[in-house]
Design a protein around this nucleic acid. Structure first.
Lengths: 189, 189
DNA sequence: TGGCAGTGCCTAAGGTGCTTAGGCAAGCAG
DNA sequence: CTGCTTGCCTAAGCACCTTAGGCACTGCCA
């Protein structure tokens, strides 16, 4: 029987596509095997199993997202950088809902440390350079931005802003305006 | 054989406890049946199945959370109300991680409309009374608060702020300070 | 170019969980 | 006390996950 040419990388990429099509929690080794027209057990030479597949998809998505964000914030500062950063996030989530969902997968400490999550944190700090926040304040601000962007994008993806006026695009712009104000007028303790 | 006294309400409550103990996505009708020392099929007279159980837990959690938030914001205004509202959210999430996770379950439109989610939205608008925001601005602000609170609480629950200084409590206070600033200095379009 | 080693994919089998159909008996109503 | 409702059961079938062990294709070396 002809070999299907399975590799860990190809399976991971196909898994990511599956996630975008069906939703991250409908990604299953069974469905993946179907796509490659191969028996399920065959995947186990390339993947550690279902959980392994999911974390590989998560790591892939984190890389992709970090690349996009890096490209977006390059050469920008201040509010310009904040908006570019946030838009990159939101756009990725809308283009790749399954992959974005994957980025929220809880990774164990070691895996997280070796992941592109680290780059995400660095880039957020880079965005804050234009706001002249330092020390603990910078960390607090990083957490604010992370919360707003993740929170907004998730609520939007969950359909929370559908069917109500004004549209989500308008709110997104105004929310980022508000965050910009908060960062510029960062309150003392 | 003695009857076990199953009811939809008891099963839902037990399911919520299961969620807090094992995590919302480890809630299974099989485990629930074990807890009641009953065969799985017996649950099907009281529950529509696994998905039904989950949405019942979600609805229960939304109610509980709305009750708490209502009690917290009663008689408060302005930043005081903002902090009380947000703390109620965060405290609930920390006491009942599984239930909180359940509140993020995507409900279909009809179910959502009949759920306590509606009360949540009303209370958020009530909090904003002290900030004198109206019309679209109020909606934008509701979305900002929703994003920050949900986002922060989720990231915290996912362990995102563990093992790094300063501690999460400090950031939480400063993030709410920043939101307060943004709401008071709400930027014009 | 032929043989052989390694490896790629397979069959087989066992586990958990979800769901439906149909049966028996416990406990209440007349 | 009889009969009926209904609460829980057995049985059976489906989907997915995982491990163990086997056959044959591919590519390397003689």
């Amino acid at each position: 029987m002809a070999r299907a040419g399975l590799t860990t990388a190809r399976l991971t990429r196909a898994g990511a596509e599956l996630a975008d099509e069906l939703g991250f929690d409908h990604v299953t080794v069974t469905e993946l095997a179907r796509r490659f027209d191969v028996k399920v057990a065959s995947l186990y030479s390339h993947l550690g199993g279902s959980a392994d597949l999911r974390t590989r998809i998560a790591l892939l998505a984190l890389e992709e997202l970090a690349d996009r964000v890096a490209a977006a914030v390059a050469g920008r500062a201040g509010k310009d950088a904040l908006v570019a950063f946030s838009d990159a996030y939101r756009d990725y989530a809308r283009e790749h809902p399954g992959r974005f969902d994957a980025t929220q997968l809880r990774l164990d400490a070691d895996t997280a440390r070796a992941s592109a999550g680290v780059r995400h944190a660095e880039m957020m700090r880079a965005v804050l350079r234009g706001y002249h926040l330092h020390g603990d304040d910078q960390t607090h601000a990083v957490r604010l931005i992370g919360s707003v962007v993740n929170g907004y994008v998730r609520l939007e993806a969950a359909g929370g802003f559908d069917h109500s006026d004004p549209g989500s695009d308008a709110s997104w712009a105004r929310v980022l305006d508000a965050v910009d104000v908060a960062l510029r007028a960062w309150p003392p303790p």
